[in-house]
Design a protein around this nucleic acid. Structure first.
Length: 271
DNA sequence: AAAAGCCCCTGGATGC
DNA sequence: TGCATCCAGGGGCTTT
């Protein structure tokens, strides 16, 4: 489910509310993608200092150590006081004196992992290979250009891999390539500098716009206050195969790339 | 080093 | 109504 915008919207929706909260108890439901790394109750007494984001990971800095939270494909988080007793897909509760953070994740591709710090091996394994943050100052065009020049894979799949830029998932990869006028199958190293400049800008624009709109709610995404996002209403290509392109009225096409769907306009997006 | 496939898991939509 | 099949916002791991 969640790409960078949804994770960022989630973060913004509870970061201030949980900051300063001291853990009273914690519980795990069914196992998630990776083990927590300690007994849930060992989190008791730690304080949540702040919530950051790295790629699609939420980082909860604790008074000692940090929690890495990933929403996988179907995860969502809610933060509130007096939550009802956990449902079948509620797999992690962090009860603090300011409220409870609860992860709901039917498919359980998500994870909550404790690390002693960012140099902890488990944190390095999950975060160490990540590319640049697209909404930060470090998203430099020259670096982007040089990284893509080394890649012969289709540009869509390079974007998805997340080792050049983080946070661009299946929706926003298709959307950014549409805005840049680039065919998703074009090999990354075959793109000219002007076209890459358009792509660089498109990635920033589409992700920031999606954050503004509260993310995309396709099936079940909502922020920690239970509110839906609206960016999907603005999608130009994602999920629109067979429909008319909003720009040129051509029929939007769907193809498969690496076991994932890709959507594009055959006229607006040049190989 | 980089690319391509394979899984992990559940639920909703679709088709017969 | 019942059952099979396909598809879904991710990404680490293994194999080429």
């Amino acid at each position: 489910m969640p790409e960078l915008p949804e994770v960022e919207v989630t973060r913004l929706s509870f970061a201030d509310a949980i900051a300063g909260g001291t853990v009273l108890s914690a519980r795990m439901g069914k196992p998630l993608r990776w083990p927590l790394g300690l007994e849930p109750m060992a989190l008791t007494g730690k304080t949540v200092l702040r919530v950051r984001r790295r790629g699609k990971y939420l980082l909860l800095d604790m008074s000692e150590g940090l929690l890495l939270v990933h929403l996988g494909m179907s995860g969502s988080v809610i933060f509130n006081k007096n939550l009802p007793s956990p449902g079948v897909h509620d797999h992690f509760d962090l009860v603090t004196d300011l409220g409870t953070l609860r992860l709901n994740d039917p498919r359980r591709f998500g994870a909550v992992v404790y690390a002693s710090g960012e140099s902890d091996p488990v944190a390095r394994k999950l975060l160490g290979h990540l590319g640049v943050e697209p909404l930060g100052r470090e998203f430099d065009f020259k670096v982007f250009h040089e990284a893509l020049a080394k890649r012969k894979a289709p540009i869509k799949q390079v974007l998805l891999a997340g080792d050049v830029v983080v946070g661009v998932g299946n929706i926003y990869a298709s959307e950014a390539l549409f805005l840049a006028g680039i065919r998703p199958t074009t090999k990354a190293n075959r793109l000219s500098r002007p076209r890459l400049m358009r792509l660089h800008k498109a990635i920033f624009d589409v992700l920031s716009r999606a954050v503004e709109k509260g993310g995309s709610t396709l099936r079940d995404f909502s922020n920690a206050q239970g509110e839906s996002g609206y960016f999907q209403l603005e999608a130009n290509v994602y999920g629109r195969s067979g429909h008319a392109c909003r720009i040129c009225a051509s029929t939007i096409k769907a193809i498969r790339q690496g076991q994932r769907s890709t959507f594009f306009c055959p006229l607006c997006q040049k190989p």
